[in-house]
Write a protein that binds this DNA or RNA. Structure first.
Length: 567
RNA sequence: UGGGGCGUAGCCAAGCGGUAAGGCACGGGACUUUGGAUCCUGCAUGCGUAGGUUCGAAUCCUACCGCCCCAGCCA
């Protein structure tokens, strides 16, 4: 029962595809595409779309293209295309030789525009941007025809040719589709399909000074690639009639169908590229790959796995209702994955010195520790034990609150894989009142943590042998925003969490970690999952906390209204 | 007060006329050398509201209510 593979519930897009397949539309082909604009880094919301598009293709034995929607050179950059390719690949998807760019089709797009003009279905309009807006009408009032709407085919052809040739200044003229200025759908009120824009394109350089609009380029690009199901987000629903208008009025090689689904929203973060860019530009985060960012590169650096992200995308489902997914689900997915795969290791984040008074000075024992109790094939390792250790400050209380069953004066606990120790004394700094050191005695009969007499202890603590410990820096992350839906605030920057990053510089880690490589993921026992940050250097490792372990005590403490140093 | 969508538990989400899947979260318990993991267990007489059709309605019909999107030469 626990091993049943949970198949994701069918979604409405699969229903549509299966119906199309049944009717043998598109000769039974399924061909999707993921069409990012290279104007920012990919985020978890894009991951949903990527998993959907590539997943659908895989499920139905079809193909999925990667196509950059690069029709606006003023906002796009190669930096972004490179990062996008890397992220899609990292997520585990492969577009084989089907890497395309809308800019690949600029020549054909131009010819299609000419085709429209010749059919009397497009015209060059000299209205200024402000005038076009006025003529468009409002939500409740129809627009009115442009005075240039009835130019002759010849004049339009000539003008459009000259637009291309660079004879007119930016913004002075546009090419418009001639549809219906009184349509209740604003997108159908003679939409602009080409504008004059002197900008260097990251791929076509200065070859063009006119660029097609999304609404024109997208359906044609889809058709040229033989896309069968063109999946996009809800805000394009109103554009579907226009998408279909181009498909129906142009001599294109195939007839793709647009389907819309609800984009992903996650609690306690923002997903708009504009807002993410702002966080980067203002230096609120260290970059697009800051581990607090919901970007793919941020999640990767944070220690998330592609498997966890894919599992998440599968569980959230695909539907048309706007929704906001609890970030706890994402955290659940990474814990679930790492629990099975991450080697366990002991690390002390906030060290407290423990001296075992009856343990022989200078003696060292190398004890066996299990690498992953979830997976015996991962084997065991040796960890050094000695007279002086570090334990977590939070694992000792001078006055233990109710339900606290870690170390306290007179109490006995187990040191994981080592011995049972009893606290006999502790040293306090007179000025600060802070506990500086604790003294214990150990029971030699409990080697390995076993109790031959059947004696029970309520707590098992992690520890690191002081003389053998390596030092490391650990970065603890918390949610970037204090509000569930920062995007809904007047100023999303006003609810930035000032404590979203805490850097601990003097952490103690067990020596087996010495050779850890950037990207390596571990469970620090009892603390959480951590991964080695690229900032690590030869002798000094830097770890990012991916996610904490579930923490029963933290819950208890919270309802007790306790202080607690952790978190 | 134009058009396009969407309303099933705290959050996602199945359900397609035969009597409300699943996951997350949350609560209870078992087990435990991680207060982890795992395992049991509880959690919508109810599907935005009100009517109607039907032996039977979350599913069909009508009306109403609420939320989202659209007036870029952005995508």
């Amino acid at each position: 029962m626990s091993t049943t593979i949970t198949t994701p519930p069918p979604n409405f897009i699969e229903d549509i595809i299966e119906e199309d397949l049944k009717q043998n539309k598109n000769d039974g082909r399924v061909h999707t595409r993921f069409p990012p604009e290279p104007n920012g880094y990919l985020h978890i919301g894009h991951a949903k779309s990527i998993c959907l598009n590539f997943g659908l293709a895989a499920k139905y034995g079809g193909l999925c293209n990667l196509r950059f929607d690069d029709t606006n050179p003023t906002k796009e950059d190669v930096e972004y295309v490179e990062s996008i390719k890397e992220d899609v690949r990292w997520l585990g998807f492969d577009w084989d030789d089907r890497l395309f760019y809308a800019s690949d089709y600029f020549d054909q797009l131009y010819e299609y525009a000419v085709q429209l003009i010749k059919a009397g279905k497009a015209y060059v309009c000299d209205l200024s941007p402000e005038e076009i807006k006025e003529y468009r009408g409002t939500l409740t009032e129809p627009g009115k025809d442009s005075p240039y709407r009835n130019r002759s085919v010849e004049e339009n052809l000539d003008l459009f040719e000259r637009m291309k040739a660079g004879e007119f200044p930016d913004g002075s003229r546009v090419l418009r589709a001639k549809i219906d200025m009184s349509s209740p759908n604003l997108n159908m009120r003679d939409p602009v399909i080409y504008r004059i824009l002197r900008a260097t394109h990251h791929r076509t350089g200065d070859k063009w000074c006119i660029y097609p609009m999304y609404d024109f380029a997208h359906p044609i690009s889809d058709a040229l690639e033989g896309i069968t199901h063109s999946i996009c987000t809800l805000e394009f629903e109103d554009h579907r009639p226009l998408y279909e208008w181009f498909i129906n009025n142009l001599d294109v090689p195939s007839r793709p169908r647009q389907i819309e689904f609800a984009r992903l929203n996650l609690t306690y973060t923002v997903m708009s590229k504009r807002k993410l860019l702002e966080l980067v530009k203002r230096g609120i985060v260290s970059g697009w790959d800051d581990p607090r960012m919901p970007t793919i590169s941020g999640l990767r650096r944070r220690g998330y796995t592609p498997e966890a992200i894919r599992a998440f995308c599968e569980r959230i489902g695909v539907a048309k209702a706007n929704s906001m997914v609890d970030i706890a689900l994402l955290e659940h997915c990474i814990r679930e994955d790492l629990n099975k795969r991450a080697p366990r290791v002991m690390a002390v984040l906030r060290p407290l010195r423990m001296v075992i008074d009856n343990y022989p000075e200078g003696q060292v024992e190398w004890l066996d520790a299990v690498n992953n109790p979830e997976d015996p094939s991962m084997g065991t390792r040796k960890v050094p034990f000695s007279r002086v250790l570090y334990i977590e400050q939070d694992d000792f209380r001078e006055d233990p609150p109710p339900k606290y069953y870690r170390l306290a004066p007179g109490r006995e606990v187990r040191l994981r894989y080592a011995y049972l120790v009893k606290c006999t004394d502790f040293v306090k700094d007179e000025k600060t009142g802070k506990v500086m050191e604790i003294h214990c005695t150990y029971d030699p009969d409990t080697r390995g943590g076993n109790t031959p007499d059947g004696r029970k202890v309520k707590a098992t603590l992690h520890w690191v042998s002081a003389p053998h410990a390596h030092e490391a820096e650990v970065r603890l992350y918390d949610r970037l925003f204090t509000k569930e839906d920062p995007g809904a605030e007047d100023d999303f920057l006003a609810c930035i969490n000032p404590n979203s990053l805490e850097v601990l510089k003097a952490c103690k880690i067990e020596p087996s970690l010495a050779g850890a490589k950037p990207g390596g993921r571990y469970q620090f026992e009892r603390l959480g999952y951590f991964c080695v940050d690229p900032d690590s250097s030869e002798g000094r490792l830097v770890f990012n906390r991916t996610v904490g372990l579930k923490d029963e005590w933290a819950k208890i403490e919270k309802v007790q209204g306790g202080k607690g140093t952790a978190k």
